[in-house]
Structures are given as structure tokens and as C-alpha cells.
């Protein structure tokens, strides 16, 4: 489905602040995969998403989606087949536009001059009622009036109203209170399962990284240092994961130090 072949990205190259955010990273995402991604701050998780979405063009390597090389495709064209949610619930919807207008924008039905049709409204109403938040009765209200959890749920709806080829979730429940976070996570699971959407999810919550999905990816210094799937993943526990991270990341850190010494010479 998504084939990432040895991509690298260095920010501020040639300066003191040079940071290798992605380091020859390769990843093969199968159709229907639900991959959870963990890693320390600065491990390159969000950078990986940015690379897939085309927020920048990678320095080297290739990104292929469904057999099509999208390495140099502009971001807004990629966005047609990629859904993305950020940690900030305010980021995914336009506050001064109504709920139905936001959904219409995401659905993109009809031509340039098409307006929201009766059929669209019925579809939105039916989808919104699945959220169980009563939003279906507030479709003409501006989105700015919604709570963070409601807005994130709406963003999820917008990202999946036309099932994307891949859904990228960047800690999309981290800014919500625990109850709401659970609700949105639950919703995510349901929608992803229903439409069998290929999904990658960054999380800081080790337990949900283990519980959700069929595959777990651990990242450190721009590399994937662990990639487990199926039964091996189900057998993981938080303790095992923490230990694994320490040993894997530890060895990586040593390599890094050696590299630094090499540079100094």
C-alpha cells in the first residue's frame, strides 16, 4: 500500500543545528495495517508523517503509494488520499464555518460551484449521529462553539468521510481529558474497522500502543528500531516494551556517540 524506501531528512543541513530527523528509514505498510508508533521526543515520528504528507520533500529515498511514486507530489494533492489528525483539536476545522460547511469541504462532493445538497445534509446528519455527541442537531452552528473533544471527533469524521487510503493520527487524543480521549479513541477504532482504513497512529501511551492495531513500530533518532506484528505484538506488555526501548535505544545511542567522535576527528 505505502512503500517508504530509505528516506532521509536533515533539518538545517551544514549548520551547528543540523538535525537528522529521518535516517534512511524504510517501511512497508500493508493494506489494512493499523500501526501504532512509539518513540521518545524528537525520534522522528511527526517528521515521518510530515514526509508522507509532503510538508517537505525528503532529501533522499522514495515514497510510493499504491504503486505511484509520490515523492515529489505537492502536499495538497497527496491530501486527497491521506487523512491526518493533529494533537491540537483546533487545527483540523475552521472555527467560523458551520459544522455542515466543514464537512462539505471535507466531502468535496460535486463541482466547484456545487452547494451543500439535501442528500449531503442527510449523509452528514447520519454520520454525526454515530458520534453520539448530539452534533447532528447543531449542523448550522459554527465549529468554534464546540469543545475540544467534539472538534477532534468532527475532524476525525472529516478525515474519514471519504475513506482515505491511509489515516495518520499524530497523538490525536493527547490534548483531551482522559474521558474524552477514550471516547475519541474508541470512535477511531470503530471507524477504522468499519471502513478497513489503513492507519498509522503516534501515541505516548504505551498501553494503547499495545492494545490498538496489528503492528507496532518503535522509532529512535529517525530510524525504526523495532517493528513487531501479529501474535508477537499481542504478547507485548508495557514492561517488555520499556525494556526493549531501553536496550534498543541504548545501543542506538552508542552508535550515535561513535559517529560524533568520528566527526570530531
Amino acid at each position: 500500500m505505502l512503500e517508504i524506501q530509505g528516506i532521509s531528512k536533515t533539518f538545517n543541513p551544514g549548520t551547528q543545528d543540523a538535525k537528522k530527523a529521518l535516517d534512511d528509514l524504510s517501511l512497508h505498510v500493508n493494506k489494512g495495517d493499523f500501526i501504532t508508533i512509539i518513540g521518545a521526543n524528537g525520534a522522528g515520528k511527526s517528521t515521518l508523517f510530515n514526509a508522507i504528507c509532503g510538508n517537505f520533500i525528503v532529501d533522499s529515498g522514495k515514497i510510493v503509494m499504491d504503486g505511484k511514486d509520490i515523492t515529489f507530489m505537492p502536499d495538497h494533492l497527496r491530501a486527497k488520499s491521506i487523512g491526518r489528525l493533529f494533537q491540537d483539536p483546533m487545527r483540523g476545522s475552521a472555527p467560523n464555518m458551520s459544522i455542515e460547511e466543514n464537512l462539505a469541504l471535507a466531502a468535496g462532493h460535486g463541482g466547484w460551484l456545487a452547494r451543500i445538497s439535501k442528500h449531503d445534509r442527510e449523509l452528514f446528519r447520519e454520520r454525526l449521529s454515530q458520534l453520539g455527541m448530539g452534533l447532528e442537531d447543531r449542523m448550522r452552528q459554527p465549529v468554534g462553539l464546540l469543545s475540544g473533544g467534539q472538534r477532534q471527533a468532527l475532524t476525525l469524521m472529516m478525515a474519514t468521510i471519504n475513506p482515505p487510503k491511509i489515516l495518520l493520527l499524530d497523538e490525536h487524543t493527547a490534548a483531551l481529558d482522559p474521558g474524552t480521549a477514550e471516547k475519541v479513541l474508541d470512535l477511531t477504532k470503530r471507524i477504522v474497522e468499519k471502513d478497513n482504513i489503513t492507519c498509522m497512529m503516534v501515541t505516548h501511551n504505551m498501553q494503547s500502543a499495545i492494545d490498538l492495531g496489528n503492528r507496532l513500530l518503535m522509532m529512535n533518532h529517525g530510524k525504526a528500531i523495532l517493528d513487531v506484528e501479529g501474535p508477537a505484538k499481542s504478547a507485548l506488555t508495557v514492561q517488555v516494551l520499556v525494556d526493549l526501548f531501553r536496550t534498543k535505544a541504548g545501543s542506538e545511542l552508542q552508535t550515535d556517540r561513535m559517529l560524533l567522535t568520528d566527526n570530531d576527528n
Binding site: C53, N55, P74, D75, H76, L77, A79, K80, R84, F86, M90, R91, G92, S93, A94, P95, N96, M97, L105, A106, G108
Partner: peptide
């Protein structure tokens, strides 16, 4: 209304 949203959407600013 939300340039951040537009940047990660299929809208071409």
C-alpha cells in the same frame, strides 16, 4: 479561517 487546516488538507491555497 484556519490556514493550518488548509495546509494539511486537499485545498490548494
Amino acid at each position: 479561517d484556519n490556514p493550518d487546516m488548509v495546509r494539511s488538507s486537499s485545498i490548494n491555497p
